[in-house]
Simulated assay, not measured.
Amino acid sequence: MSTPHDSAQTQILSALNSMEPQDSLEILKMPMVKLLSQLNEEERVHYILGLFSSDADDKVSSMVHL
């Protein structure tokens, strides 16, 4: 069963997929800055590293030990 969240996500992804990657990122920039500013530093790092790898926890741990 589809939820309103699923529907919104599908619509957003459809709109972003119809654009060039640079345009999609520019559209996402302002809401992402706002949302990320509401997280603490550890949460922001975890989220951002998670964009690049599923091993975000391992990378954060490695960075802490530097």
Rank of each mutant, 00 (worst) to 15 (best):
M1I: 04
P4Q: 02
P4E: 05
H5W: 14
D6V: 04
S7D: 15
A8D: 10
Q9T: 15
I12L: 07
I12H: 02
L13D: 14
L13S: 13
L13R: 13
L13Q: 14
S14P: 06
S14A: 12
A15I: 13
L16T: 05
P21G: 03
P21R: 01
Q22H: 09
D23R: 06
S24K: 10
S24L: 09
L25F: 13
E26T: 02
E26C: 03
E26W: 03
E26M: 04
L28E: 03
M30A: 09
M30K: 04
P31E: 02
P31M: 03
M32W: 06
K34T: 12
K34M: 12
L35H: 10
L35W: 10
L36Q: 11
L36N: 09
L36E: 11
S37E: 14
Q38G: 12
Q38T: 03
N40A: 01
N40Y: 00
N40L: 00
E42D: 10
E43P: 00
E43M: 00
R44N: 07
V45A: 00
V45G: 00
Y47Q: 15
Y47W: 12
I48N: 05
G50W: 01
L51Y: 00
L51M: 09
L51R: 02
S53E: 03
S54Q: 04
A56H: 02
A56T: 01
V60K: 04
S61T: 13
S61V: 03
S62T: 03
S62K: 11
M63Q: 06
M63R: 06
V64P: 07
V64C: 08
V64F: 11
H65D: 08
L66Y: 13
